[in-house]
């Protein structure tokens, strides 16, 4: 019984993807471009999973780059000014991001959908403005500053090591979300998402749960931000950009909103498409193709690529009848 439960096609697929992820560095060997693409892909899997976790609580954000950037700045400042090892400052960055995230969350819990989207977008703009104006003496303004790498470049094969570090973190984040969503917390979040009034009637106070979702999402996004910065070895205020707020949304929608696998699959598919089109030389064209893909998916496949097998099966059955 228990074994049958474990051996579903879904879990098998997850195991295959994980196994592939583990051996991929041996397949690409010393191709630094591909390895960089893979490392960034993993970082964005963490980031878009964090964004997606927020939607489990019925909230959304158009300004998640604020948390990416806050984590990145806090982590890199701690690493540069205090000389702490990057892996430790990652957690500090995440905690700082979560702290601000909960503060923002407090202003947002009463808002619904697109008011919330506006406010989160606004916070990203405000934080970026602070970083380049009043805080410029600390942050270096628009120029930014150099930061150490996660794995020092002096170690041979540092990029492969970095890949495994990021992979480990990505798996940890996904496992954490998996167990959280199966716990009572996950049930409460689902109840709040479906109908807040009914959730209240059932004795669930939505506020702490929404704040928890906001804080955890900001924490994980902050870690992703730190990883991105330590990967590039440089930080600028462009980390707060609108683009970086939009990417996790695009990834999550393409893959499937409100599913754990959605952001993972979406990130993989869109990143491969993105870099593939880049290789073909479509600098602006690839944005247009991604935009059209997004519009088509929202209209024709509102539950994302994850639901594609189910939809095809449905079509088949209907034809058979």
């Amino acid at each position: 019984m228990r074994l049958a439960q474990v051996r579903t096609p879904r879990n098998l697929l997850a195991a295959v993807i994980l196994a592939l992820a583990l051996i991929v560095p041996f397949l690409v060997g010393q191709n630094l471009y591909l390895l960089t693409v893979l490392v960034l892909m993993l970082i964005f899997i963490i980031y878009s999973s964090a964004w997606n976790f927020l939607t489990f609580s019925g909230q959304g954000s158009l300004g998640h780059a604020a948390f990416l950037g806050l984590g990145g700045y806090a982590a890199s400042l701690a690493a540069v000014r205090l000389g702490l090892p990057p892996l430790l400052t990652l957690v500090l960055g995440g905690l700082f991001s979560a702290f601000i995230g909960i503060l923002i969350g407090i202003t947002c819990v009463r808002l619904r959908e697109w008011f919330l989207a506006m406010v989160t977008f606004g916070f990203a703009v405000i934080i970026q403005t602070l970083v380049v104006s009043q805080l410029a003496p600390v942050t270096g303004g628009w120029d930014g500053f150099a930061v150490p790498k996660i794995v020092p470049t002096s170690i041979p094969g540092y990029l492969v090591l970095e890949y495994y570090v990021v992979l480990l973190l990505a798996v940890l984040v996904l496992v954490l979300f998996y167990f959280l969503l199966r716990s009572r917390i996950g049930l409460a979040l689902a109840a709040i998402r479906e109908n807040e009034t009914e959730a209240r009637a059932a004795g669930i106070n939505p506020v702490p749960f929404k704040l928890f979702a906001f804080g955890l999402s900001a924490f994980v996004s902050g870690i992703a931000g730190g990883l991105e910065i330590f990967h590039f070895g440089y930080i600028t205020p462009e980390i707060f950009g609108i683009d970086l707020s939009f990417w996790p949304i695009i990834y999550s929608i393409t893959g499937g909103l409100g599913t754990l696998a959605g952001p993972v699959i979406g990130t993989i598919v869109v990143t491969l498409l993105w870099d593939g089109l880049n290789v073909l030389g479509l600098t602006y064209g690839r944005f247009i193709i991604i935009g059209i893909l997004l519009v088509l998916i929202i209209i024709f496949l509102p539950r994302g690529l994850v639901s594609l097998p189910g939809e095809i099966e449905k079509r088949w059955k209907r034809k058979g009848e």
């Binding site: 959304g60 158009l62 602006y284 944005f287 997004l294 509102p302």
Partner: peptide, 28 residues
Amino acid sequence: RPILGTGKLNEIFISLGLIYIFQNGVAM
């Protein structure tokens, strides 16, 4: 029109797609 009434978030998301299409169409 196709997504009318399917939820506020879908409208925001479809506008994201449109933003990408228009901005980069003009940039091209």
